[in-house]
Amino acid sequence: MASRKEVTPAAIGVLAGYAELPLAPGREAVIIGTLEAWIKDANELSRKMSAEKYRDLIPATVFSHPIDPEEDR
């Protein structure tokens, strides 16, 4: 796996651009520390959840169906 790239102010600017989020001047410096820490941890969790043994797990956010479908009509 390629080594992790550091989050930079320029990268934050690109991400904000993709989201069409206009960042006020200086905002990159305010959020960079927390964003970098959270992305690092989120990537670690993603690696864990990509393991073969978890392949059948589905996300918690899916529609569930009532035992009796008539109930929700």
Binding site: L21, R27, V30, T34, A42, L45, M49, L57, P59, A60
Partner: peptide, 29 residues
Amino acid sequence: ADVRSLLEIGEMLLATHYLQAQRYRTLLR
């Protein structure tokens, strides 16, 4: 200040980060 930062950060995480977190919920539950 703090809530603004958290809301900005939330726009920069990936959809795959979010869904892997939701799959982790299934595992932990």
